[in-house]
C-alpha cells in the first residue's frame, strides 16, 4: 500500500518536474547576455547536447541573424549547454538547423494550440514562449501558468 502511494506520488511529481526548468544557479552571465536578448533564455533541457553543439557552431547564421560571440564566450556557453542539455531520446530529432519547436516533445505538448493562436501578432512566433507561458522567464512551463492572449483559445 505504501509502495502504491509512493508510485502514485511519483506519477504526479514527474510531469510537474518536467515543466519546471529554472536556469541553474551557476548559469554563466554570458548565457543571459548573449542568448536572452532577442529571445527568452531557453532552458538548456529543451535540446539535446548534439543539437546545442550544432546551434553554437552555426551562430554566424542563427535563423538569419549573425549572433556570433567571441571564442571564449562560445566555449563557456557551449559547455554550459552541454552540461544541462536534455535527453535526446525523449526530445526526439530537432531537425536541421536544430529547432526546439521541431522536437517531438514540443510538438506533442503544443498539439492543442490553434493556427489562429500561432499567427496572432501578440504571439508572432513559436519562439515567443512568454506570450502564453507567463512563468517562462523563470523556467516555469506548467499548465497552470498558461494564459493565452485575450480573445484566443
Amino acid at each position: 500500500m505504501k509502495r502504491l502511494a509512493l508510485i502514485t506520488l511519483l506519477g504526479f511529481a514527474l510531469p510537474a518536474f518536467a515543466d519546471r526548468m529554472p536556469l541553474p544557479a551557476n548559469t554563466p552571465a554570458s548565457f543571459k547576455a548573449e542568448c536572452a536578448s532577442c529571445h527568452l533564455a531557453y532552458p538548456p533541457a529543451l535540446l539535446a547536447a548534439k543539437d546545442w553543439q550544432r546551434t553554437m557552431a552555426g551562430l554566424k547564421d542563427h535563423f538569419g541573424t549573425d549572433a556570433t560571440v567571441d571564442a571564449k564566450t562560445a566555449q563557456e556557453i557551449t559547455a554550459f549547454l552541454e552540461r544541462n542539455a536534455g535527453n535526446s531520446d525523449r526530445l526526439g530529432s530537432a531537425g536541421e538547423p536544430p529547432r526546439i519547436t521541431q522536437t517531438a516533445r514540443f510538438i506533442r505538448k503544443h498539439r492543442e494550440v490553434s493556427a489562429k493562436t500561432w499567427s496572432d501578432p501578440r504571439v508572432k512566433s513559436a519562439a515567443n514562449c512568454e506570450a502564453c507561458h507567463r512563468g517562462a522567464a523563470n523556467g516555469s512551463f506548467s499548465e497552470r501558468e498558461i494564459t493565452l492572449p485575450s480573445g484566443l483559445k
Binding site: C38, H39, S125, A127, N128, E130
Partner: peptide
C-alpha cells in the same frame, strides 16, 4: 518594442 522575428518584448 517587440522583436520582429521572435516576438520578445
Amino acid at each position: 518594442g517587440q522583436h520582429s522575428v521572435t516576438g520578445k518584448s
